[in-house]
Design a protein around this nucleic acid. Structure first.
Lengths: 342, 342
DNA sequence: GCGATTACCCAAAGCGCTTTGAATTTAGGC
DNA sequence: GCCTAAATTCAAAGCGCTTTGGGTAATCGC
């Protein structure tokens, strides 16, 4: 069933039917009602391509999937997507996932833009001088960044307060009496990683605690690296009595390392992990319950979609910046340092 | 830059330029070359909507994201998507994620079809009499199912051998000497869950071991349920000396429960988990390394995309069925039962 | 050298929708 | 009851691309 046929059925012009369906004011209430009824009855729904061709808007936003297994594609991804999609459905927009081809990311972005398959783009996991941000800004293509960069040119972004999260967590550990605090976070170069390290350093420096470079680890987020790095850290003398973990997966590995060394978690060694909030991995139900810096990445996705819609509606990007605070949720994996039993 | 302009630049007709770019034979080699060069130079790329409107094919396949936090949206999702997207890029197709609105899934599918935004659909996590499968089959809309149903009408699907996986795992445990084996799997009703239970039962029955209904648990996949259910199971007398876990997250919870009861994993209580293969959660690096039934969900996604393309190309759906075997990878979390120390 | 192919290229007709500009009714004012 | 303004409705012109149905020039067979 197409518009033309529906219009014929109703004895109306395509114009009127189209307007009735799209909620334009210049159509009689009774007529509009009649049209909706008919559309319902025949299961009519506009051909998305034709509509978009006519309207000039694509009705979809894009997100590139890195081909390699970078930090940008982990368990948090599905949560983030879920948030995006949820919001986009409010605006009748689709989410287009485009995989980058032969690892030339920038080319993939260009292709995505030039083929006009999306109105805007969402980019995630930026580096401090992210070239994608630079490119899209220059191309004047609408986008919202999840994260931040040091790039001066104005662009829209939403980020969580990574520095604050780690500063707060480290401060808290210091308050508890810890003096040897390590951090195992994501790969260097990524903004979030740099910011977290900054926050960590600030907390230590503020309290006059020397920063031991061996205690700052940047690695892929995985239980495996968490395990290995924590084992290494715990073999030092003195070893850290507290570890900040950049992800839940890392924390799982760290937990294992602590146990394998015979230490008690939350006593001899404390751990505070950053939690993106996964429905299937609950920090509060672990044993001991995990102290976390928490920020729902699902909510962030949802909000970012909203912001992108605003960018598309013409809101100046220089107005679109949000930094979300991160909560520190105290649970049992962090406590005052206790001397080892041996 | 649009086709018309490009054609003018070249002093050719739109027809010729279009044909040159799309690889049609009736265009001079030199001309084709000249056109490609120019397209490259001006960064021309066809407007996807116009192209699709003309061509009648959408160039995208759809996948619905359940709004609720069902089994269908977990950590495996991003891996599955990743596989899909990787394959689709070979065919210049997009992946459209559409969130279901107000939890009326069927309506969301209908909307997706009638608005002609996708050529085909991928559906996952079916129940035995999945209504989506029934609906799409009846509507004659192309789709490929990840999983299986009992629906007789022919439709394309790819599934892993869930029954075989659990049968194999249970058999192995029996070989090791276990007589009290439990399973904690996903929610009842889902095909994979039913099949796994079937496999488990078969293995026990085959060896003359009575099936204890208390030992069969169906729950959401999460570390939390793994923990609670395993705790419950281990409080029975006699308690299971081995547990099959339906997911890695469940297994994490089970591990915790075993430890919290003071049992040694792989000795007093064995665990075999199903592993979809996550880059960030590696079974072989756990301590003890986890015995798993392994099947890459990423590969499945990739293959399913390929199958859907074939369906779209007109291959009869009754030819498209694949059951993938599941490997049992023996590691240290499973071993002969050892009597508890007390 | 001439008709018949073959190779290339083109103008124009859609694809199904939105929107402009105009026409037709209907309502309002005196 | 007549004129003007407001309320409805419509015909037709795109949106940018593919494809049909011809053309024209180059090539071939004899």
């Amino acid at each position: 069933m197409k518009l033309k046929e529906l219009a014929e059925q109703l004895g109306l012009s395509q114009t009127t039917v189209s307007r009735a369906l799209n909620g334009y004011p210049e159509v009689n209430k009774a007529t509009r009602e009649r049209v909706s009824q008919a559309a319902q009855k025949y299961g009519y729904s506009a051909n998305a391509n034709a509509r978009r061709l006519a309207i000039g808007r694509i009705g979809a936003i894009g997100i590139l999937m890195p081909r390699d297994r970078s930090e940008r594609f982990g368990p948090h991804t599905s949560e983030f997507f879920s948030g995006l999609a949820e919001q986009l459905s409010q605006h009748e927009m689709d989410l287009l996932m485009s995989p980058s081809i032969n690892n030339d990311e920038l080319a993939a972005y260009r292709r995505l833009i030039s083929s006009k398959r999306v109105d805007g783009i969402i980019i995630t996991g930026p580096t401090l001088m992210d070239e994608r941000v630079a490119m899209l800004t220059e191309a004047k293509f609408p986008f919202v960044l999840h994260g931040r960069t040091n790039i001066a040119a104005p662009h829209a972004w939403l980020d969580i307060d990574n520095a604050g999260a780690f500063r707060q967590a480290a401060s808290h550990l210091i308050d508890l009496g810890h003096r040897h605090i390590a951090m195992i976070d994501g790969l260097k170069g990524h903004t979030f990683s740099e910011h977290r390290e900054m926050g960590y350093r600030e907390a230590l420096v503020e309290r006059g605690i020397a920063v031991d470079p061996r205690f700052i680890v940047h690695e892929r987020f995985s239980d495996e690296t968490g395990f290995h790095e924590a084992q290494r850290l715990l073999s030092y003398t003195p070893h850290p009595t507290a570890i900040l973990a950049g992800s839940m997966m890392t924390a799982l590995g760290i937990f294992r390392a602590i146990r394998s060394k015979g230490y008690e978690l939350g006593k001899e060694v404390s751990v505070i992990a950053h939690d993106d909030v996964f429905p299937y991995l609950n920090a509060s139900n672990m044993v001991p319950a995990m102290t976390t810096t928490r920020s729902s990445i699902r909510s962030a996705g949802s909000r970012i979609a909203e912001l992108l819609v605003r960018v598309l509606d013409g809101e100046p990007v220089e107005n679109i910046h949000e930094i979300w605070p991160v909560e520190l949720i105290l649970r049992q994996s962090s406590g005052p340092p206790v001397a080892p039993r041996r």
